[in-house]
Amino acid sequence: MDDPRSHDEKDNQMKVVNMDSVSKFYNREKALDNITLEIEEGERIVILGPSGCGKTTILRLIAGFIAPDTGGIFIAGEPVARDGHIIKPPERRNLGMVFQDLALWPHISVKGNIEFGLRAKGLPKIERKQRTQEALNLVGLAGYADRKPAELSGGQQQRVALARALVLEPQVLLMDEPLSSLDLELNIRLRKEILRLQKKIGFTLLYVTHDRDEAFDIATRVVMMNKGWIEYEGTVENIQKHFRDDLPKIRS
């Protein structure tokens, strides 16, 4: 018997995230132009592009902070936003996000920052405690649970932000230039850390950066953006082969 669902609907269900012909305007200026992007489970996708090309807008659309003006967004096959309307708000999308400024709540301890989402989901105290401890162990901050974010170094703060996002076991982890404010040495060290965690847990990663080296280090697939549209999309090897020596210098 034929499945009554449309071909597109069935296709959407196989993807963790699907952006279907999404456009977004800010004050009549096009920030995203008919973007179609599919993310499969376990992938590490890096969106690479110069400042203002629309890469953060993609993350904010997927997170649900803004709605697409045209087109639709699906998470795990379910429509979450379409044509100017948010169908599912951010708190119900089961996503994790590491912000560019980390957005660690300064008045709450490290433990409290990590536990916050678990409380919001109404998990019992024992489970919350256990999962918070696991997350702290995972990022190597077991001894820092009671400290305030301001009492940690830049690298440790990055780890707290990562633990806070991962403790919720999100369908997709969104990272918005999380390492851009760090020095190169720490940046490289944390890239390795993110890769280690991704391989260990297997979460799906959507990572935004303007740094080519960072993108090539992390990605299984790179999406190159410029002026609101996708210029090229492929594996690191494909991109290197495609552009050879003409690979645009994206670092801004």
Partner: peptide, 29 residues
């Protein structure tokens, strides 16, 4: 207060009331 403070709570699953009580109001103390 950076908007990301409230957005981070929203992504973590907190509804409007919880965000106001535990994040925004303490930061606007």
């Amino acid at each position: 207060i950076p908007p990301s403070m409230e957005e981070a709570a929203q992504v973590a699953g907190a509804g409007w009331f919880r965000r106001m009580v535990f994040i925004v109001a303490p930061l606007a103390r």
